[in-house]
């Protein structure tokens, strides 16, 4: 088990592993997201209070869940990169930041579109919304810091430190609705005990969630592959790979 992990952390074997995994993950992502969106947008019953507007959860909830999960993943990769100096973890920080920023922006935009008919305003200065906006700025800060360095290893270590410090915001976003009784409603599925959502609505949501996680996984894998190729462009395995492709 450990030797397998150890081998996977070397760039060439990770590259081939990602090359094999990514198409399957993409196929799963398309099926799950397709089921979640079609079943959620057409077949799930209307909400008795929110009508059809509730259907935005099939995009909003997966996007918001991923904005937090990806930041957590980035912070874990940052700790690994700083403590064990594993190159693959450094690559993961660079690769996860743009994916996370996109999902955060998607969560904010879908939330605003839902907020207009439900709350009567696109934006309110509520704890959940504000902390999610700060999360977006943190992602953009990591992307900006990464782009500013010429040396890739120094960039990765600087980004790792920033990602760890910014991780304080993650529990604040997660629990803001409970700590401050904000306008944003509390979670209906990700909690202990019986979900307060009917199965007809919940199943497509689980599908959309799984699909979004798989989609984020695919984009992270593909990004990591590209970053690896760019960083290791002078290494023999990259040259051999390119020669193989050209032939």
């Amino acid at each position: 088990m450990w030797t397998w992990f150890h081998r996977l952390a070397s760039p060439p074997s990770f590259y081939t592993f990602a090359e094999r995994l990514a198409p399957w993950l993409l196929a799963f992502a398309l099926i799950a997201t397709g089921y979640g969106l079609i079943a959620g947008l057409w077949f799930a019953p209307r909400d008795y209070q929110q009508g059809d507007a509730f259907r935005i959860i099939y995009v909003h909830v997966p996007a918001a869940a991923l904005s937090l999960s990806l930041y957590t993943g980035m912070a874990i990769a940052a700790v690994i990169a700083l403590v064990w100096r594993i190159k693959l973890a450094e690559v993961a920080i660079t690769a996860l930041a743009p994916v996370g920023a996109s999902f955060t922006a998607l969560a904010l935009v879908t939330g605003m579109l839902w907020g207009k008919p439900m709350w009567g305003a696109y934006w309110v200065w509520d704890a959940r919304l504000t902390s999610e906006l700060v999360l977006l700025f943190l992602y953009l800060g990591v992307i900006g810091l990464d782009a500013a360095f010429a040396d890739r290893r120094a960039a990765a270590r600087a980004c790792a430190l920033l990602a760890i410090v910014g991780a304080v915001n993650v529990p604040i976003v997660k629990y803001s609705v409970e700590w401050w009784n904000s306008l944003h409603q509390t979670s209906t599925i990700l909690k202990f005990g019986k979900p307060t959502i009917t199965t007809d609505m919940a199943l497509p949501l689980y599908g959309a969630l799984l699909g979004a996680y798989a989609l984020a996984g695919v984009s992270a894998l593909r990004r990591m592959q590209n970053v690896l190729l760019l960083r290791e462009r002078r290494a023999t395995w990259v040259r051999e790979l390119l020669a193989e492709r050209a032939a």
Binding site: T130, V134, F137, L138, L140, G141, G144, L145, L162, V165, G166
Partner: peptide, 8 residues
């Protein structure tokens, strides 16, 4: 850009 979100 780095400081201001951390100080929010």
């Amino acid at each position: 850009v780095l400081v201001l979100p951390l100080l929010a």
